[in-house]
Amino acid sequence: MNVDLFDFDLPQDNIALRPASPRDSARMLVLDAAGMHDRIVTDLPASLRPGDLLVFNDTRVIPAQLEGIRGAAKVGATLHKREGPRRWRAFIRNAKRLRDGDTIDFGHGVTATAGDRGDDGSFALDFAGDEPVELLLERAGRMPLPPYIAAKRPTDARDADDYQTMFAQEPGAVAAPTAALHFTPALMAALDAAGIGDATLTLHVGAGTFLPVKADDTADHKMHAEWGRIDAATADRLNTVRAAGGRVIAVGTTSLRLIESACGDDNIIRPFDGDTAIFITPGYRFKGIDGLVTNFHLPRSTLFMLVSGLMGLERMQAAYAHAIAGGYRFYSYGDASLLLP
Score class of each variant (00 low, 15 high):
157 A>K: 14
162 D>P: 06
105 D>W: 10
198 D>I: 11
273 D>H: 13
174 V>N: 07
110 V>A: 08
320 Y>R: 08
239 N>Q: 08
227 W>E: 01
222 K>A: 15
242 R>E: 02
257 R>W: 04
40 I>D: 00
98 L>S: 05
158 R>T: 13
214 K>V: 15
210 F>M: 08
207 A>W: 09
111 T>V: 13
158 R>S: 05
208 G>S: 11
177 P>S: 06
67 E>Y: 10
279 F>R: 13
339 L>C: 04
32 D>Q: 06
268 I>T: 15
106 F>G: 04
28 M>T: 06
209 T>V: 08
33 A>Q: 13
148 Y>N: 07
246 G>P: 01
221 H>N: 12
190 A>K: 10
4 D>Q: 14
301 S>R: 11
164 Q>M: 04
143 M>V: 14
23 R>G: 01
214 K>P: 00
201 L>C: 03
306 L>S: 05
44 L>K: 05
133 V>H: 10
57 N>Y: 11
88 W>P: 03
39 R>M: 04
229 R>K: 14
26 A>L: 00
89 R>A: 01
170 E>R: 15
302 T>Y: 04
29 L>G: 08
117 R>H: 01
155 T>E: 09
309 G>R: 05
336 A>S: 14
184 T>E: 01
18 R>W: 03
247 R>F: 03
186 A>L: 03
297 H>Y: 03
22 P>Y: 04
118 G>S: 15
38 D>G: 02
175 A>N: 09
146 P>R: 08
128 A>C: 03
299 P>M: 04
324 I>C: 05
331 Y>M: 10
87 R>D: 08
240 T>V: 04
161 D>H: 12
82 R>C: 01
91 F>A: 10
285 R>F: 11
18 R>Y: 10
308 S>N: 11
206 G>I: 02
246 G>Q: 04
11 P>W: 04
204 H>T: 12
177 P>I: 09
335 D>R: 14
241 V>F: 02
41 V>D: 00
230 I>D: 02
325 A>N: 13
243 A>P: 02
211 L>C: 02
261 S>W: 08
9 D>S: 13
152 K>I: 10
158 R>F: 04
168 A>W: 11
18 R>S: 05
150 A>V: 09
61 V>D: 05
103 T>L: 11
192 D>R: 12
267 N>P: 00
130 D>V: 15
162 D>A: 15
86 R>I: 06
